[in-house]
Each structure stands twice: as structure tokens, then as C-alpha cells.
């Protein structure tokens, strides 16, 4: 790979040619704000928050789409750049609901973060605000298009990663919105509820229903784990507060690049189903009766020992589980084999 020499905020830097200014900046720890950039998606250059000043350029180019060239001199936080960013924030606020106090996204909202960073407290522009009804009819997430800043990440994620292509831009000018074909509710579209749009929405336009009002983003513990459904092995973070799961966020650094499907993203609430078994049960006269672990274990041990003594070890058989952990499968076969039988299998065949 050939390298080019550039100057970033006065600092001489060598960068691989072909990298964008944004990537070059990130590599040396310079944070350039952006709403619409996602390393996995095609480059949109839409939000213009990441504009920078390049010596000799007429306009302020977007750093996310501008490749570095030899000798390029870049300022990422010049007055001109900051003014442009402030202007974008003010313009964004002009059409945006001012309800951060109750917005679910507070604390993990990029509009908030950047407004704080650039000291923008709302908008000087009076005028029309959006009044699009909330779409809350699907079971998994809210779509509040009044909060949408049209960064288009959800559209690209839906088309480029999922392939469902359920949403796209519609209408023009101030009336532009991201919606489904014929502007129907999301469940009438080709959406398969993978939730990846929700996970990359930088503002409160797409928010999960699960965990609503159950804590701010920073209040939850995030536990990295592996999905219990199919064999793809997606990993994600369970958000836990007060011993309850309040949400899931993808592991963008993991092997699946943060991709999820509806089951992993939204289908974890079985964990606290009222149907959960919470105590051992022993069947007596055809009815299950609650028992202690000690009672249950004694009974099982004596029965297995009895069968083995009377009919031999191969009269015992066990089905292990493709849903439990390696450690548990290991112990299961160890137990059966230790009792003297190889009658152990699981449902790999089903």
C-alpha cells in the first residue's frame, strides 16, 4: 500500500492512500463528528457534519467521502468548519422536537452530544416543524419521524446489509422522509424486524419498545454474550438493570459486525416468562408436586442406580442438548458414560 503525507490540524501524518480524511483522522485519534457515516455502509456524505477545511478547496468537503491526497492540509476544527457544523445543528434543531427530557434516546443521542460539543442550544430559525404521527403499531420499535434527521443510515442498512429494502427516502425538500413503500406502517412492508436500523439510528427516531422508560442508556450494565437461537453465533450485549434485561445492542466489533435478526434482537423476553420453572417437580399420582433439589436428586440417583443394577447400564439413555453450553454437554456425556453407557445423543439430526 502506498502512503501519502498529509497535515492534520498542523500534525504531519502518513496515511494509506485510498483512505478518507475521516479515516485518517480517526486513526490518529482526532474525532470528527458525523451522523451519517457507518464504516460498513456505502458513503453517503449526506449529513455534512464531518466537513473539514482543506487548503485550496473552494468548499468544505465532507471528510467521510474525501480521499486523502499527497500534501493535503486539513483543519478539522477551524472557525469556518465549526460555523458550518453549528449551522447544521441549528438547522437540524429547527425541525426537531425539543423533548430531550423524556426522549428515550437521551444520553446516547448524537444530536445531543454534538449540540453540547458545539454549544448549540436550539435553533434561531422559526418556521415549520414536522408533525408526522408516531408509528407504534409494530411490536418491536417506535418510528418517530419527527425526530428523524434523514442521515439515511437505516435505509442503507436495510438495503445493503439486510437486503429487505423495506424503507427508502420519499418526497422531496423539507417533506423528505424515510418510509416504507406507499408510506404504510412498517409491518405492512417487507421489513423483517432485524432491528439493525434501530441500532444505528443516531437520534430518537427509531427506539425499541422493550425497555421503554426503564432506565437511561448509561444506567444499564452491558453483558456480552452469544445468541441462544440459530447456529450463526451472533454476539450482542444484554442491557441489564435491576436484574432485568432491558435491551440488546449489537457487538459491532464482533465477528458478525453487529448483524442480528428479529429473534436475537427482540426475542429474549422468554427469559422472564411467567411459565418459567422455578423449582424441581416430582410426579406423584400423575400430578407434579414441588420438591427440593435434595429430594429430586435422591430420587433420580436411586432410580438410575436401580435400573443399572437390574437391567445394566445400557438400559439408561440420555439426550443432551444443542441449546446448552459446551461445558454442560461435556458433563452430560461424562455422566452417562461414567454410568457405563454410550447411550447419549442430542437433536443435531433434527
Amino acid at each position: 500500500m502506498t502512503k501519502v503525507n498529509i497535515t492534520l490540524n498542523g500534525q504531519a501524518v502518513q496515511v494509506e492512500s485510498g483512505k478518507t480524511v475521516l479515516e485518517a483522522a480517526q486513526a490518529v485519534g482526532i474525532d470528527i463528528p458525523t451522523f451519517c457515516h457507518d464504516p460498513e455502509l456505502s458513503k453517503a456524505g449526506a449529513c455534512r457534519m464531518c466537513v473539514v477545511e482543506v487548503a485550496g478547496a473552494r468548499n468544505l468537503p465532507a471528510s467521510c467521502t474525501t480521499p486523502v491526497t499527497e500534501g493535503m492540509v486539513i483543519e478539522t476544527e477551524s472557525d469556518r468548519v465549526i460555523n458550518a457544523r453549528k449551522s447544521i445543528l441549528k438547522l437540524t434543531w429547527a425541525g426537531h422536537p425539543q423533548d430531550c427530557l423524556t426522549c428515550e434516546k437521551t444520553g446516547s443521542c448524537k444530536l445531543q452530544d454534538y449540540s453540547y460539543r458545539y454549544d448549540v442550544d436550539g435553533s434561531p430559525y422559526k418556521g415549520e416543524v414536522k408533525e408526522i404521527p408516531l408509528d407504534d403499531t409494530n411490536p418491536f420499535f417506535f418510528r418517530d419521524l419527527n425526530k428523524c434527521i434523514l442521515c439515511g443510515k437505516c435505509v442503507r442498512k436495510c438495503h445493503e446489509v439486510n437486503g429487505a429494502g423495506a424503507i427508502d427516502f420519499m418526497y422531496r425538500g423539507f417533506g423528505t422522509k424515510v418510509t416504507t413503500a406507499f408510506d404504510d406502517a412498517i409491518e405492512e412492508s417487507s421489513c423483517v424486524f432485524c432491528g439493525m436500523c434501530v441500532d444505528i439510528c443516531p437520534v430518537g427516531a427509531l427506539t425499541p419498545k422493550q425497555g421503554l422508560n426503564q432506565g437511561r442508556a448509561w444506567e444499564a450494565d452491558k453483558v456480552l454474550t452469544t445468541c441462544p437461537y440459530c447456529g450463526s453465533g451472533c454476539t450482542f450485549y444484554l442491557h441489564v438493570r435491576d436484574d432485568k434485561i432491558v435491551g440488546v445492542t449489537p457487538n459491532f466489533e464482533g465477528p458478525m459486525d453487529g448483524h442480528l435478526c428479529v429473534k436475537g434482537r427482540f426475542g429474549w423476553d422468554f427469559v422472564d416468562s411467567p411459565d418459567r420453572l422455578k423449582t424441581p417437580l416430582i410426579k406423584k399420582d400423575g400430578e407434579f408436586v414441588e420438591a427440593t433439589w435434595e429430594e429430586a436428586m435422591d430420587l433420580i440417583a436411586s432410580k438410575f442406580e436401580g435400573v443399572r443394577a437390574q437391567f445394566g447400564a445400557d438400559a439408561i439413555a440420555g439426550l443432551s442438548s444443542a441449546r446448552t453450553t459446551n461445558e454442560e454437554n461435556y458433563l452430560f456425556q461424562k455422566l452417562l458414560r461414567s454410568m457405563g453407557t454410550n447411550n447419549v445423543d442430542h437433536c443435531a439430526r433434527l
Binding site: 456524505g45 458550518a84 425541525g95 418556521g127 427516502f169 418526497y171 422531496r172 425538500g173 423528505t176
Partner: peptide, 20 residues
């Protein structure tokens, strides 16, 4: 404003506020 494709913030929002 009515022909703005809606993709970038300055054009979509900025021409709207200029128009207003």
C-alpha cells in the same frame, strides 16, 4: 426547496429556512 432531493442537511433544511 421543493426540488431539493432531501439528502444533505444544508440544502434540505437550509433552503427551507431561507425560503421561510
Amino acid at each position: 426547496q421543493s426540488e431539493s432531493c432531501g439528502k444533505c442537511t444544508p440544502c434540505r433544511e437550509g433552503t427551507k429556512r431561507m425560503l421561510e
